[in-house]
Simulated scan of single mutants.
Amino acid sequence: MTTTTSTLAPSRQGEVASTGPRNLARDILIVLHRELRPLLRDPFSIMFGLIQPIIFLALFGPLLVGSLGGAAEGALGESVWQWFVPSILVMTALFGTSMTGSNLLFDFQTGAHERMMVTPLSRPSLLVGRALKEMVPLSWQAVLIVVVMLPFGFTLYPVGAAGGLVILAIFGVGLGSLSYALAIAVRKQDWMFWVVQQTFIFPVMILSGMLLPLETGPHWMQVASKFNPLTYMVDAERALFGGDLTNPDVLWGILAALGTAVLGLAVGIRMMRRSAD
């Protein structure tokens, strides 16, 4: 009884002490710094993360240019790459943040999660800090991808690109939090994490129109895409990276990102608290 009380006390005190925007921001920075340290020691992992988007750009992009050149150019009035590169950035964020729960599974195995839960850190900071960590390499990768694609006809609109990355970060916090919630739910059967993640991610990706425009697809797919938050994210990123800041798709993308973040944090924080019981 005495041991249980002393273990839970710091956790409860941390939730009280970390209330308020200033303390929450401090806690998020602490968690973010902790999560970034392994990445800073191994910067080659960022380059390794570029392999998948580069493969899609190098192999799938030319097929898109050849088969859908006119249709894709009509979407933004510029090159096909202006239509496709933002999709690749969203895809990178989707894969990166949806897999963050695997890091938590490793923390469960090593006991690191239990040690974090008894520190005076707020529960939201444990989720937000970890999810934001995935957006740091994404930002670096986005810069490298844009630089690589400039000679191929991609036009950079700095203000729109910066806004697009901010929206992706908000979306990534929500999706990363849901990934952590999934990891907590299946921590006793960790193989289930990958089953659920893979089952979820590919239908959502295809139904967003990320790789191919859905206008030429069956009607049921077009209807289903309207209920997919990623659809609005992709449309918003294309508008922003195309320099069209006043496009209504931008507002819908912001709402989709905020909705995902609110849902993810609500579910993730609840699961995080339950994991301490």
Rank of each mutant, 00 (worst) to 15 (best):
107 D>V: 06
155 T>E: 13
196 V>K: 13
28 I>N: 09
167 I>V: 15
45 S>D: 08
242 G>K: 10
237 E>G: 01
136 V>G: 11
239 A>Q: 11
274 R>F: 07
224 A>Q: 05
165 L>D: 03
113 H>S: 13
190 D>L: 06
175 L>D: 07
169 A>L: 00
157 Y>P: 01
51 I>M: 15
269 I>D: 07
77 G>K: 10
80 V>G: 07
11 S>I: 06
111 G>P: 02
114 E>L: 09
65 V>Q: 14
149 M>N: 12
162 A>T: 05
15 E>D: 14
131 A>R: 06
220 W>L: 08
121 L>A: 11
207 L>C: 00
72 A>M: 15
117 M>Y: 04
62 P>Q: 09
231 T>G: 00
79 S>M: 12
30 I>G: 10
228 N>P: 01
170 I>Y: 04
235 D>F: 07
123 R>A: 15
274 R>D: 12
239 A>N: 09
64 L>K: 01
234 V>A: 00
190 D>R: 13
66 G>K: 10
200 F>C: 13
14 G>M: 08
37 R>E: 10
7 T>D: 10
62 P>L: 06
210 M>E: 00
184 I>F: 11
88 I>S: 00
266 A>G: 07
58 A>H: 08
120 P>M: 11
224 A>V: 02
63 L>P: 05
200 F>K: 05
139 S>H: 02
104 L>M: 13
32 L>T: 06
21 P>F: 12
158 P>R: 05
5 T>C: 05
165 L>P: 00
245 L>R: 03
241 F>H: 12
125 S>R: 08
15 E>R: 12
271 M>K: 07
160 G>C: 08
269 I>L: 09
187 R>D: 05
2 T>C: 00
268 G>Y: 05
29 L>Q: 13
106 F>K: 09
19 T>P: 05
58 A>G: 04
82 Q>A: 14
28 I>S: 05
73 E>K: 02
247 N>V: 03
248 P>W: 08
176 G>R: 09
130 R>P: 02
29 L>C: 09
3 T>P: 06
227 F>P: 00
91 M>A: 11
75 A>K: 09
133 K>T: 10
251 L>S: 07
192 M>Q: 09
58 A>R: 05
172 G>N: 09
216 T>G: 12
179 S>T: 13
88 I>P: 00
49 G>L: 07
103 N>L: 13
7 T>F: 12
75 A>V: 15
55 I>T: 08
51 I>W: 10
256 A>P: 01
240 L>V: 01
267 V>H: 10
204 V>Q: 01
102 S>C: 03
108 F>G: 07
131 A>I: 07
274 R>N: 10
217 G>T: 13
129 G>I: 05
170 I>N: 01
66 G>E: 06
239 A>C: 10
122 S>G: 15
177 S>F: 11
145 I>C: 01
150 L>T: 12
237 E>N: 11
225 S>R: 01
125 S>F: 13
48 F>S: 02
3 T>C: 04
50 L>E: 00
277 D>Y: 08
129 G>Q: 09
131 A>F: 06
254 I>K: 02
26 R>C: 02
219 H>N: 03
105 L>D: 07
19 T>Y: 07
